[in-house]
Amino acid sequence: MKRMNFDEAIENAIIQAMLEDDRIIIMGEDVHTNRSALVARFSDRIFPTPISEASFLGAGITAAMAGLKPIVELWMIDFICVAFDAIVNHATKVYDFSGKRWGVPLVIRAPCGGGLGDGGQHEQILYGSIASIPGIKILLPSNPADAGGLMLAALQEKHPVIFLEHKLLSEQLLYYLGGSGRNTVKFDVPENGIEGEVPDHWVPLEIGKLKVLKEGTDLTMVSAGVAVHRCMDAAIELEKQNISAEILDLRTIVPLDIDNIAASVQKTGKILIVDEDYKQFGLSGEIAASLLERKLNFTYQRIGTETTIPFSPQLEVKTLPSVEKIVSMSQFLFYGSH
């Protein structure tokens, strides 16, 4: 075992995969600089693009159909919207339209998430909006080991995958977007997420399997990405109040590991979903519906983003999931009142 940063782990897993599989190429804006370490080794496999997401994401689909394995990068997941057609009407449709004869092994890699004071067009996470479309997997790792393992798994998939990389976990993005030259601003960076132990040789993680980060008996917390770390911090607080939370790190949003969520809820009878994405019409509702379909008996609460993420940092912290909110909602769930 050795230790690595989150972004280092991803890059490391990509290098391992690129050495083993020469179909892998990388495409996207500024990849010649953002992936400079890869340029040196694989210069003819790195394709920097103009600011033309609709085109290069669309082109990534047919390049994949023709036998390549493109990693198409976006500067941020928010910008997928100008290329949404490529996802909704193409990447996810080709396999079915072709009578399940033609897959699209495409990996879309995009930074996501809030907490850097950048406002509502540069901080969204958007997995819920994408997740409703059948035919695409969505990964959201919370730590370096999962990030590398899931990236390797994504590169072995036969169908489209979106790999989300939370900005608060990436040293490189914090340095670049957070302002390399000022120490006057602090971000709430989860230290167990940005750096950690990784295997000496990457093995692909199974996509669609959650991880129990902490066992507990009183309530189940389900989340992914940075929100997982907020739950862990809240659990310490709750432990002091004799409330024992079980914490599940989804790691993949699609496919959703509903079996293991159900198993935990069966034990605790209570579930709190902590979702950085929009609360309405998304992951939290999906989990509730899936559990109800299984005729489980449980009480339920959720925390999610309900409005446009405000630019103002003091409003932003009130909008995104926070330890404070999680503690308070857990108490509500546990006692039945605040």
Binding site: G119, F311, L315
Partner: peptide, 8 residues
Amino acid sequence: AGLGGHMH
């Protein structure tokens, strides 16, 4: 009202 910021 602090909702947009310098890019918006």
